[in-house]
Structures are given as structure tokens and as C-alpha cells.
Lab assay of single mutants.
Amino acid sequence: MKATFQVPSITCNHCVDKIEKFVGEIEGVSFIDVSVEKKSVVVEFDAPATQDLIKEALLDAGQEVV
């Protein structure tokens, strides 16, 4: 499964690193693409990962998800 999250609070590479760390810890996540320019995060994943778990990880990383 693939999901795109709009994350307007992404401003720098530190944000990218933190997002990759938090989302990458979720079992089932196979790909993460964070774009500072587009302020988006694209995640490819399989169970047990879910969109809700990914959104929670983004929030835990200090990001706003819309």
C-alpha cells in the first residue's frame, strides 16, 4: 500500500531525518520519501503498518499532518 501525507511543518533536513527515523521504526514500512519542497511524505507499507500508525509517528516526530 502507498500513502501520501501533507506535512506543512517540514522545513529542513533535520525534519527529514527525524521523520525517516520515526516512520522507519514502524514494522511493515518499506519505503519513505520526504520532500521539503512539496512538504509531503510518501510511504509504502504493508501490514502491520497502517496509515494511522504512520500519522501517529509523524506527530511523535513533532510534525503537523493535514
Rank of each mutant, 00 (worst) to 15 (best):
Q63F: 15
A3V: 14
E56P: 00
V16K: 13
A61Q: 04
E64M: 14
E27W: 06
G28S: 01
S9L: 08
S35N: 12
V42P: 01
Q63M: 15
T4G: 07
V23I: 11
D33G: 09
Q51V: 15
V66D: 07
Q6R: 10
V41P: 01
H14P: 05
D60G: 10
V41Y: 01
S35M: 05
K2V: 11
Q51I: 15
C12T: 12
E25M: 14
E37I: 10
I19H: 00
I19V: 06
P48R: 02
A49D: 02
K18Q: 09
I32T: 03
V23S: 00
V43Q: 00
C15H: 12
V43S: 01
F22C: 04
M1G: 09
T50E: 00
V43I: 06
A49Q: 03
V34S: 01
G24W: 12
S30Y: 13
T50Q: 02
C15D: 15
A57R: 06
E37P: 06
D52H: 10
K18Y: 07
I32C: 04
V42L: 11
I26T: 03
E56F: 08
E27D: 10
V65S: 05
V29S: 00
F31Q: 08
V7Q: 03
C12K: 10
E27C: 06
C12S: 14
E56Q: 15
S30F: 12
A61K: 01
P48E: 02
S35Y: 04
V34C: 12
Q6M: 12
D33W: 13
Q6K: 10
D17Y: 10
F31E: 06
L53N: 05
A49E: 02
V7F: 07
V65I: 10
P8Y: 07
S40E: 13
G62C: 15
E44I: 14
K38H: 13
V66I: 13
F45M: 00
V34H: 02
H14N: 15
D52L: 09
F22W: 09
E44T: 12
V41T: 01
Q63Y: 15
L53V: 07
E56T: 12
F31C: 09
N13D: 11
G62M: 13
S40I: 14
T50P: 03
G24T: 07
M1R: 11
D17Q: 13
C12R: 08
V65F: 07
E25T: 10
E27F: 08
L59W: 08
K2G: 04
D52I: 08
E56H: 14
D60S: 14
V16T: 05
I54Q: 02
M1Q: 13
Q51G: 07
F5R: 00
D60E: 13
I10N: 02
V29Q: 02
Q51E: 14
E20T: 14
D46G: 10
V29T: 03
V16G: 04
E27S: 07
E37H: 09
V66S: 09
C12D: 13
D60P: 03
E27Q: 12
A49Y: 03
P48T: 03
K21L: 08
E25W: 08
S40Q: 14
H14F: 13
V65M: 08
K21A: 08
H14A: 15
V65N: 05
I10K: 00
G62Q: 07
E25G: 12
E64W: 11
V41M: 04
L59R: 12
I19E: 03
E27V: 12
C12M: 10
S9V: 05
C15I: 11
D60I: 11
F31H: 12
E20K: 15
T11Y: 15
K38W: 10
E37Q: 10
D33H: 14
K18L: 13
V43K: 01
D17H: 10
V7H: 03
F31P: 02
E20L: 15
L59I: 13
V43N: 01
K21N: 06
K18C: 07
V7R: 00
H14Q: 15
D33S: 13
G24M: 12
A57M: 04
S9M: 08
M1K: 12
E56C: 10
V42A: 07
A61C: 14
N13E: 13
A3L: 13
L59Q: 09
G28M: 00
D33E: 14
D17E: 14
A3T: 07
P48M: 01
I10Y: 03
G62N: 05
E37R: 08
Q63C: 15
L59S: 06
A57E: 01
D52K: 12
A61H: 04
G62L: 14
P48A: 02
D52M: 11
K55C: 09
V65L: 08
L58S: 03
A47R: 09
L59D: 04
E37M: 06
K2S: 08
A49M: 01
S9E: 07
A3G: 07
S40K: 11
P8V: 12
V16R: 09
F22T: 08
A49H: 02
F31W: 13
L59Y: 08
D60A: 15
V36M: 09
Q6E: 11
V66N: 08
K38S: 11
F5N: 05
D52F: 08
D17W: 13
V36C: 15
L59V: 09
T50L: 03
E44N: 08
V41I: 09
S30A: 10
F5C: 07
D17P: 06
F31L: 09
I54L: 04
V66Q: 09
V43L: 03
H14W: 10
K38N: 13
V43M: 01
I54K: 01
T50M: 03
I32R: 00
V34L: 03
V65K: 05
D17L: 11
D52T: 09
F45Q: 02
I19N: 01
V66G: 07
D17R: 13
Q6G: 08
P8S: 11
A57V: 05
F22G: 04
V36S: 03
E37D: 09
P8H: 09
I10D: 04
E56M: 14
C12P: 08
H14K: 15
N13W: 10
G62R: 04
A47C: 09
V42R: 08
F31V: 07
E56W: 09
V41F: 03
G28K: 02
L53I: 10
D52N: 08
V16L: 07
I10S: 03
L59H: 09
A61L: 08
E64N: 09
E37S: 11
I32E: 01
V16A: 09
A57I: 04
E25S: 13
A3E: 10
K21P: 02
P8R: 10
V42T: 13
M1D: 07
N13S: 13
V66M: 08
K21G: 05
F5Q: 04
D33K: 11
S35H: 06
Q51W: 15
V43P: 03
I54Y: 02
L53A: 13
G62V: 12
D33T: 12
E37Y: 05
M1W: 06
T11Q: 11
S30N: 08
Q51M: 14
V23L: 12
A3K: 06
C15E: 12
I10V: 07
L59N: 07
E25C: 07
F22E: 04
V65R: 05
L58P: 02
T50I: 02
F22R: 11
V36T: 05
S30K: 14
K2M: 08
K18P: 04
V7K: 00
Q63I: 13
G24I: 05
K55V: 15
C12L: 08
V65E: 05
Q51S: 11
V42E: 07
A57P: 01
A3C: 12
V23C: 03
T4V: 13
N13C: 14
C15A: 12
E56L: 14
G24H: 04
C12Q: 11
V65A: 06
F5V: 05
V29C: 04
V36I: 14
Q51T: 14
A49I: 03
Q51A: 14
V42S: 09
F45T: 01
K38T: 11
G28Y: 01
L59K: 10
I26W: 00
V29G: 01
V7L: 08
T11P: 12
K39H: 08
K39F: 05
I26N: 01
I10T: 04
V23E: 00
T50V: 03
K38C: 12
F45V: 00
D33Q: 12
Q51F: 14
Q63S: 05
I54S: 01
T11D: 10
L58H: 02
K39I: 04
D60W: 10
C15P: 06
V23G: 02
P48I: 03
K38R: 11
K55G: 04
S9G: 10
V34E: 03
K18H: 06
V66P: 06
G28C: 03
K21F: 11
Q63T: 06
L58T: 03
D52Q: 13
F5I: 06
S35I: 07
A47K: 10
C12V: 08
G24R: 11
A3R: 01
V29P: 00
A49W: 02
N13A: 13
G24A: 07
V7P: 05
N13F: 11
T4M: 09
V42H: 11
D46V: 13
E44Q: 10
I19K: 00
P48L: 00
M1C: 14
G62D: 06
I26Q: 01
E64V: 15
K21D: 04
I19T: 01
F22N: 05
V65D: 05
F22K: 09
I32G: 02
D52P: 05
K39D: 04
A61N: 03
A47M: 08
A57D: 00
Q6H: 15
E27Y: 06
S9N: 10
S35R: 05
D46P: 02
